[in-house]
Simulated assay, not measured.
Amino acid sequence: MTTATLLVSCPDQKGLVAKISDWVFSHGGNILHADQHADSTAGLFLMRVEWDLENFDLARSEIDPTFKKLATEIQAKWSIQFSDYVRRIAIFVSKQDHCLYDLILRQRSHELSATIPVVISNHPDLEKVAHNFGINYHHIAISPNNKLEQEKQQLALLKQYKIDLVVLAKYMQVLSPDFLAEFPQVINIHHSFLPAFAGANPYHRAYKRGVKIIGATAHYVTDELDEGPIIEQDVIRVSHRDSVTDLIRKGKDLERIVLARAVRQHLQNRVLIYGQSANSDLGLRTVVFD
């Protein structure tokens, strides 16, 4: 079964569920899943609708322009994705391999509906891992002096491999605003329960504070470090008996799970971003539909 998924956000108003559902029905669509949320603080209505395309009377190229009339009426922002489009992921890494292995194995076991044609790294260490799975590997060294020039090479590779999504799987570099302006579809895994312990060495800082839980956060990347809209988070308990090494070991297990969940939710078109900048009264945030 091939389906279409509509993600829509607009000012909250009466009758939106009926209007959007009726638009799908009027063109022969059979709605399989529908979920919605009204954010009273933002005054926004957010909805995800997925329908079967078998008897839908619009060609794919006609869906966007046809829905535009209703979208204009309700002042909506929207996107439409199709279930048979398999997205292409580039994984960025440094030296740690746990998230890289996890994503590749989940993709190979069909837990993630995507292809992984390339791994890009600022170190040569994980080349063998990529090659063992038949994945192309590109080592592009990054330093403060060559960062912008090297990022141009990375962007050229993303274009060459026709990449839809970049996943930072423990890539220990900050992407520049220029990079993100050209390629904004980036998910990062951060080794703490944001907003706690943003930045570097969170496990060491958590140990110093004597925390009783540690966490991991997967989020979209923005210009503001570790301030991007959050997709997925989880925590695990720790105790006074745990050393920094124990925190790191437990944290790595959590990082794998949280990153995989976030990537899967993105690939299934379940994440809708709304709001403004992280410094505004209503920061960038997400609705993640079940």
Rank of each mutant, 00 (worst) to 15 (best):
R108L: 08
S280N: 15
A59E: 15
Y274M: 11
V287P: 13
G283Y: 10
L155F: 03
A42Q: 10
Q150R: 15
F289H: 06
R106E: 04
Q268A: 15
V288F: 01
A130C: 09
E54R: 15
D12F: 09
I273M: 13
M47K: 09
F183V: 09
V235Y: 09
S243K: 09
T115K: 12
V258M: 07
N132R: 06
H98Q: 08
T286N: 14
K162N: 14
Y207V: 09
P117T: 03
T5W: 00
Y274W: 13
R106F: 00
R106L: 05
L53Q: 05
A278D: 11
Y220I: 09
C10H: 07
S109D: 10
I31A: 07
H138L: 07
Y203R: 07
L126M: 03
Q150V: 05
P117D: 02
F92G: 01
K252C: 04
S192F: 02
D57N: 15
A260V: 04
M172Y: 08
N269H: 14
H266F: 10
H204M: 14
L112P: 05
I135Y: 01
I248A: 14
L58G: 08
G251E: 02
I248Y: 06
R106I: 02
D290S: 11
D52L: 05
S26G: 08
N279C: 14
D178K: 12
L46D: 06
I248T: 12
F92V: 04
V287L: 07
V8W: 06
R261Q: 14
A38L: 11
D125K: 07
S40G: 12
L126K: 02
T245Y: 08
A260P: 04
S94D: 06
K128H: 11
D125H: 08
F179P: 00
R48D: 04
L100D: 00
L259I: 01
S143Q: 13
P65N: 04
R48S: 04
T3H: 12
A262W: 00
S113P: 11
V86P: 01
D84N: 09
L100A: 00
K19H: 12
V258I: 14
P144S: 13
D57H: 10
R209A: 14
R88I: 05
I273R: 10
H266G: 01
Q150P: 06
W23D: 08
A130I: 02
K14D: 15
D52E: 13
S143W: 00
Y274N: 07
Q153C: 13
V86Q: 09
